[in-house]
Computed example of a mutant assay.
Amino acid sequence: EKSENSPLRFGEGLGEGYLRISISDTGSGIPSDIMERIFEPFFTTKGIGEGTGMGLSVVLGIIKNHDGYIRVESEANRQTTFYVYLPVIIEEEKKITTCSVPAENLPKGQEHILLVDDEEAIVKMMAQMLSLSGYKVTPLTDTTKAIAFFRNAPESVNLVISDMTMPKMTGLELAAHLKAIRADIPIILCSGYNESVTEETLKAVGIREYLTKPIVRSDLAKSIRNALSHASETNH
């Protein structure tokens, strides 16, 4: 059992070759019973309308996308400290070596991706990742607009990436609408830690790829190519 001042680490790190950034406050601390949940998407202790619970989840996603990790220490009624560890880049004789996998080695493409998530911050972050990998991205935060866009030009979209939990409909419901318009459209579904989606449920609506938030860039890159490759094989 962890005490309230026990450190917790999120993400993987080698321990050496990392730059540490520490941020501390003098607040009331983080209770031990919620410490392990603070990075979960949509988890918040604030009241309705006061927060989305996505702030720390997005932070963790960004850090992991840079092959870093984050450690938390909290002392009740005194302070909380976040330690961010990022891999150091060493330049030697015009050759750069890092602790992380070079972004240029990740799978890339030029296909058109329809990205749907009701969280503006997540849409912007993922759209940037996809654009850097060469993809054309149409980012939308409204499922109704996503359906209308897709219905207008279904053949122009090569892949759909959708969040699971959204205000007007779930990602599964959105997938069903899109599949009704074009049955062979490949779809990747993304969800939070606390959302249970079975393989049978995904197969029922024709979804083959499933990612858990926060999204890691390398996992996203591989899932995109897997989904597109399977769609291409199915159509031939």
Rank of each mutant, 00 (worst) to 15 (best):
L60H: 01
S74R: 03
P139C: 01
Y135V: 01
E233A: 15
K145Y: 02
N194Q: 13
I70V: 12
N235D: 11
I215P: 04
E75S: 14
M164P: 02
E200W: 11
K222S: 10
K64A: 12
K95H: 10
I38N: 04
M164L: 14
P31H: 01
I181F: 09
I113F: 05
K168H: 12
Q110M: 13
G192M: 02
A103L: 15
F150C: 00
M166V: 07
D184C: 00
T97Y: 10
K203P: 10
A103W: 13
V58L: 07
N77G: 03
R151E: 12
P154V: 12
I89K: 05
M164R: 05
D142N: 06
K2Y: 13
V137Y: 01
Y69E: 02
L114M: 08
D67V: 00
R208A: 11
N194H: 12
R225D: 09
R182S: 14
K168F: 09
F39Q: 09
T212C: 09
E16K: 13
F42E: 01
P154M: 09
L140Q: 02
I185G: 13
F39L: 09
T170V: 08
K179W: 11
S196F: 10
P87N: 11
E1Q: 13
G68W: 03
K203F: 11
E200D: 14
K136A: 02
N105E: 15
I113R: 02
V59N: 06
E119Y: 05
L178P: 06
V197T: 12
L174G: 10
L14V: 13
E16C: 09
G29M: 01
R151S: 09
L106K: 12
R208K: 10
I38E: 03
S223T: 05
R151I: 02
E1H: 14
V88E: 15
T97W: 08
I96N: 08
I122Y: 01
Y193A: 07
K46P: 06
I34G: 06
Y135K: 07
E200R: 14
R9Q: 15
Y18M: 06
E36W: 07
P167S: 07
F42W: 01
M125A: 01
K203C: 12
K64W: 04
H236F: 14
G55P: 01
L114A: 04
F10Y: 11
R78W: 08
P41T: 08
V59D: 07
L106A: 10
H236P: 12
T138P: 00
A121L: 06
I224H: 01
G55M: 01
S131N: 07
L132N: 03
K168S: 15
P31V: 03
K108F: 08
G55Q: 02
M125P: 00
R182G: 13
A103F: 15
S24P: 07
L174C: 11
K145C: 04
K108Q: 15
P87T: 09
E199D: 15
S3I: 12
T141Y: 00
G55K: 04
K203L: 15
L106Q: 12
S32V: 14
E92K: 08
E12F: 04
E1Y: 14
D25F: 08
